[in-house]
Design a protein around this nucleic acid. Structure first.
Lengths: 225, 225
DNA sequence: AGCGATGTCGTACCCGGGTACTACGGTGGC
DNA sequence: GCCACCGTAGTACCCGGGTACGACATCGCT
C-alpha cells in the first residue's frame, strides 16, 4: 500500500487527486496540505511514501518544501507537479531532491505510474522534459571535452553540506568499516560514531550506510581499489 | 493488427501483459507460453508477429528458445524481456537473433512502442542498455574478429565461483537494494533472498553486504552512476 | 537410476545498524 | 556576553541483516 500526501493550494485540485488515488486499491491518501509549511509538518507527522507536491503555493512554495523534506533523510519521496513544463522549475525541483517531475495535464495513468515508480525509489520525469533535461545533464558530464580539464573532484552537492568530520566518517563508511571499527580506529565512543553516521545519512539523503557507500563511490570520495 | 505470443513463467506477469496488449485496438494476444518449449511449439503453430519472451524460465530458457525460433527463418520477431539489465543476457539474446531487448520495469508505453517497432522489422533496445551495448560494440570493432570470445570476463576471481543467479544477486546488492526490495522485484521469498545473499557473502569472503557492495564496485560488476 | 549442483522456501535466533531523544564542553562570530 | 555550530557521549528501542538449520524440486551428468 502506497501512502500519499497531497500538497496543493487548490481544494478542487486536491479533491481530484484524492478521487483518483483512492480509486486505486494499492494507494491511500493520508492527508492534504494547502501550502509548503503544512506539507513539511504533515510529512514529518504522517511519513507518507510519496508527497504529491504542487510547485505554486502561497507561503512556502513546493520547491523549498521539497528541499526541506528531502533534507530530513526521511524515506518519503517527493513527486513535483506543475501546470507548465517550465525548465527552471524542473531543474531546481530535482536539485532540491525531488524524485520526479510531472505536468498536471498528464494522463491519469501516467500520474499513477509516476507515484508507484517514485515510491519504489525510481525517478520519473515528464516526457516533454526528459530531452531537455538530458541535454542539460550531458552538457555537464563529459570528461572528454578538451576545454575544461581542471576538475579533479566535482563532488556531489550533497557532500558539501557535510562538516569535515562527517566527510571523514563517510569516507570510512565507504571503506566498509563497521561502527565498532570506526570507534576503535578513531578513538571515539561507538555512540559518537552512531551520531555522526546518523547525521551523514540525514544530510546525504541515504536511508542506510549501504546507500552511503554507493554515494561515496559515485562521487569519487572513495575510489575503487 | 499485430499478433503477439506471451512467453513467461509467471502467470500474473502474463496476465499483466495480456491486459495491456488487449487494451490496444491494434494488438491481440494469440496465446501464452509458460516455458521455452511451449513458446517454440506455439510459435510454430500460431505464427505470431511478435513473441514477448522472458529470459528466465524453467526448462528451456528464453535465450535458447529465441535461438531456435529465429533459426526457423520464420517471420516471427522475438522481443526479449528481463527483470534486469544484465549485459550477458543482452549480448547472448541479441546474438540469438532477437529483434529487441527491454527491461520489464519499463513504462507500458515503451513496451507497446517496442512491440510495434519490432513487428515492422525495426529493432529496439532498452535505454539503460544502449550505452553499454554501444561501448561493447565499438570495443569489438578494432581489428578483433572474435568468433568464440563472447565472454569478456576480466572479473575478479572471487566472482567466478558464483552461479549466475548469485551474480545477479550480487549485482542488485551493489545497487543498494534491501532484501525486501530484492524479493519484491525478483518475485522471490525474502527467505530465498537471504539464502542467496548468505551464499554470495560466503563465496566472496565478505563479512556483510557492505563489503559485497565494495567488491561489486571494485570488480566493475556495478559501475558508478 | 542415481547423484550433485542449483534454486527455492521456511523457521528460529542473535546482533549490529539506525533512530530518537538528551546532554555538555569548546570555539568562533557578532 | 551570548549564541550557533560542532564534536563528543549516553540511553532506549526497533528492525533488517546475517546465520544455522532443514526441506524439496528441477536439471544435467554419469
Amino acid at each position: 500500500m502506497t501512502t500519499v500526501l497531497v500538497a496543493d493550494d487548490q481544494p478542487l485540485q486536491r479533491l481530484g487527486f484524492r478521487m483518483l488515488l483512492e480509486s486505486q486499491d494499492d494507494m491511500t491518501v493520508l492527508g492534504e496540505a494547502a501550502n509548503g509549511t503544512e506539507a513539511i509538518r504533515m510529512t514529518a507527522e504522517l511519513h507518507p511514501d510519496v508527497v504529491l507536491m504542487d510547485v505554486r503555493m502561497p507561503g512556502l512554495d513546493g520547491i523549498e518544501a521539497t528541499r526541506r523534506i528531502t533534507a530530513t533523510g526521511d524515506r518519503t519521496r517527493v513527486l513535483i507537479l506543475t501546470t507548465f513544463d517550465l525548465d527552471e522549475y524542473a531543474y531546481s525541483g530535482l536539485r532540491a531532491g525531488a524524485s520526479g517531475f510531472l505536468v498536471k495535464d498528464a494522463q491519469p495513468e501516467e500520474l499513477l505510474a509516476g507515484i508507484r515508480a517514485v515510491s519504489t525509489g525510481d525517478a520519473v520525469v515528464a516526457p516533454s522534459l526528459t530531452r531537455r533535461l538530458l541535454d542539460a545533464y550531458v552538457h555537464h558530464l563529459p570528461a572528454k571535452t578538451p576545454t575544461d580539464g581542471p576538475e579533479p573532484t566535482p563532488l556531489d552537492a550533497r557532500l558539501t553540506a557535510l562538516t569535515d568530520r562527517e566527510r571523514e566518517i563517510l569516507t570510512v563508511i565507504g571503506k566498509g568499516w563497521t561502527n565498532t571499527e570506526i570507534a576503535a580506529r578513531l578513538h571515539l565512543a561507538e555512540s559518537t560514531v552512531k551520531t555522526h553516521v546518523g547525521r551523514v545519512l540525514a544530510k546525504t539523503g541515504s536511508r542506510d550506510r549501504i546507500q552511503a557507500v554507493i554515494l561515496a563511490y559515485d562521487t569519487g570520495l572513495v575510489r575503487p581499489s
